[in-house]
């Protein structure tokens, strides 16, 4: 079968110690048996490693941060699209999703397809409103509270016992054992990601995660559960293993079916010793460990691209449990002229 030629643009090329999902997503697409893809990397910073991985990415462009405004970002995408004729664009950062979701019609007018959650889906799964999400969809979640000021810290003990989790709106989470630690982590997170801060009840158990893809009509196109085997000091998985956990898959199917989730997602859950499952976070995109799903038999990046193109995708229910991923670091050697080109022209 002749492969279909398409051009895919993706962000999240920061394959660093806190990696974005762009590079693993692209690896999945590169292994597609159906697509012969030209890959366009969209980078915010000029040292995102993916830019220099020429075996994976055909051409990279710098794009402005979403904080510059959606008009500025769209103008840049329009410029890139005139050259590259992008078929599908896959954003991979939580912080940029809102802008891309709001701009999906304008992107469509340019001929660029996306496959993103709806604004309602995106908003209702925020960490700050997770208790309401749990209530609405009958999913167990830990108690949580949003705080805006240090003055609210002393009263936290009236609601939750220490330790507590201190989380940023988009990124970062720390376990705090004392009010002083809550204050310290609150300042650390807010200086980076702003307010509010989410205080979450600490549930004792093992963290388990699921990477999944919903078709927007309530069908789970694919889902692979994983347990982190080795965690970095940033709390990121450096190694993980696929699990044979039917309860986790049932919860995933329930969430996708009830919310009619559209696009990639990562569920972060705690499994207690009593085999109860608590949902602690929903990330509204494929995670950085998505290549494990490809290795275990479900090419979710390829399926996401097909959904974006409006193609029918049959649900994948099988995967190989006991499949491991182990990350590694690798030094790319680049000539200064490449860095120069990207820095001066914004493209490489």
């Amino acid at each position: 079968m002749e492969k279909k030629k398409i051009t895919i643009a993706a962000t999240g090329l920061n394959n660093i110690d806190n990696p974005g999902p762009g590079v693993p997503f692209i690896r999945g697409v590169r292994e597609s048996k159906e697509f012969d893809s030209r890959i366009i990397g969209l980078a915010y910073e000029n040292l995102e490693p993916g830019i220099y991985m020429h075996n994976l990415i055909d051409k990279s462009y710098q794009i402005p941060y979403p904080s510059s405004g959606s008009d500025v970002l769209l103008r840049r995408i329009e410029y890139i699209n005139k050259i590259e004729k992008i078929d599908v664009l896959i954003p991979n950062f939580d912080a940029e999703l809102y802008t891309f979701m709001k701009s999906s019609d304008k992107l469509k007018e340019m001929g660029i397809s996306t496959f993103l959650p709806t604004l309602e889906q995106f908003e209702e799964r925020h960490k700050s409103v997770l208790p309401e999400f749990g209530k609405k969809y009958d999913i167990k979640v830990p108690g949580s509270k949003t705080i805006f000021s240090e003055r609210e810290i002393p009263d936290l003990v009236n609601e939750y016992k220490y330790p507590m989790l201190v989380k940023g709106k988009y990124y970062d989470a720390y376990v705090a054992y004392t009010p002083e630690q809550v204050r310290m982590y609150m300042n650390k997170i807010s200086s980076k990601w702003g307010l509010p801060i989410i205080i979450q009840e600490f549930v004792v158990g093992t963290e388990v995660n699921v990477v999944a893809l919903g078709d927007g009509n309530g069908i789970t196109i694919g889902a692979v559960p994983m347990r982190k085997q080795y965690i970095t000091d940033k709390g990121k998985a450096w190694a993980g293993i696929t699990l044979d956990d039917t309860n986790l898959l049932e919860i995933t199917n329930k969430i996708i079916s009830k919310t009619k989730w559209r696009g990639g997602m990562e569920l972060e859950m705690i499994k207690t010793n009593e085999d109860d499952y608590y949902l602690i976070e929903i990330n509204p995109r494929l995670p950085a460990w998505v290549y494990l799903s490809v290795g275990a038999g479900q090419n979710l990046p390829e399926a996401l691209v097909k959904l974006a193109l409006g193609e029918k995708v049959e649900p994948m229910t099988k995967y190989k449990n006991g499949t491991l991923f182990i990350r590694y670091s690798y030094d790319l050697i680049c000539d200064i002229s490449e860095f120069e080109k990207l820095t001066l022209n914004g493209e490489l």
């Binding site: 085997q229 293993i241 699990l243 044979d244 006991g322």
Partner: peptide, 11 residues
């Protein structure tokens, strides 16, 4: 056979 015991539900 080599004595490696693997629990596929927990990893």
């Amino acid at each position: 056979e080599s004595g490696f015991v693997f629990d596929s539900s927990t990893g």
